[in-house]
């Protein structure tokens, strides 16, 4: 599934759900050693209740990237930044461990961000990056990456396009703990998603 954001028309994000991942340790090692074939954002799917929650974290990343002039990124890549923005916590290592690939996570959400450009180039890019050629090119790249994901991740890979896919995968107890929900915890997924979106948007302000 390709996610698009009308505010940033040149940006496209590939979103994939990998279930029953078998080579989680290999992936973790490869990500840490910055292997090019593993240049994706790997998210522990147990922490996620809805596609909205994922998109909200990406939206926050993009907003910071383009408009926060002082500090567009707190980590060294947009992918790590998205994981950090999925966490209510400002501690980078801790957030990556909890919300990225963590021990015993059998299901991953894999994202890749395309068409970012530099923070200050947004205006020009709107006009230059979008012509059909570039768009076709991008389609090819995305297809290649999708294939690559299927190659490097030993799992059942499906495009993530609705919340139903996450039922049974998200771990509500873990969410309650990681987001420190306490009394606020609700089991209704729609309400929970709304709650998490607000928590994410307001963290570290």
């Amino acid at each position: 599934m390709i996610y698009k954001y009308p505010q940033f028309p040149h940006v496209q994000v590939l979103g994939v759900l990998a279930t029953n991942v078998k080579n989680i340790d290999t992936i973790k090692q490869a990500v840490i050693s910055l292997d090019q074939r593993y240049d994706y954002c790997f998210i522990n799917a147990a922490n996620v209740v809805s596609v909205e929650q994922i998109n909200c974290a990406i939206f926050k990343t993009l907003t910071n990237y383009y408009f926060n002039e002082k500090k567009p990124l707190r980590t060294n890549s947009v992918h790590a930044e998205t994981i950090l923005n999925l966490s209510p916590n400002a501690n980078i290592t801790d957030s990556l461990n909890r919300f990225g690939i963590s021990k015993g996570s059998a299901n991953l959400i894999i994202l890749k961000v395309y068409g970012l450009g530099g923070p200050q180039q947004r205006q020009q890019e709107n006009e230059s990056l979008l012509p059909d050629d570039a768009a076709k090119d991008l389609q090819g790249v995305i297809q290649r990456d999708l294939q690559n994901i299927k190659d490097v991740v030993e799992a059942e890979v499906a495009e993530l396009d609705n919340d139903e896919q996450l039922v049974g995968i998200s771990d509500l107890k873990l969410i309650k703990k990681n987001y420190k929900l306490g009394d606020m915890m609700v089991e209704d997924r729609e309400v929970l998603s709304r709650l998490l979106v607000s928590v994410l948007q307001l963290s570290d302000l």
Binding site: C56, F59, K60, T63, F67, N68, E69, R194, V197, S198, Q201, L202, L205
Partner: peptide
């Protein structure tokens, strides 16, 4: 209302 997004910089 439901809070959807926030852009404090703008």
């Amino acid at each position: 209302p439901k809070l959807i997004g926030l852009d404090v910089y703008n």
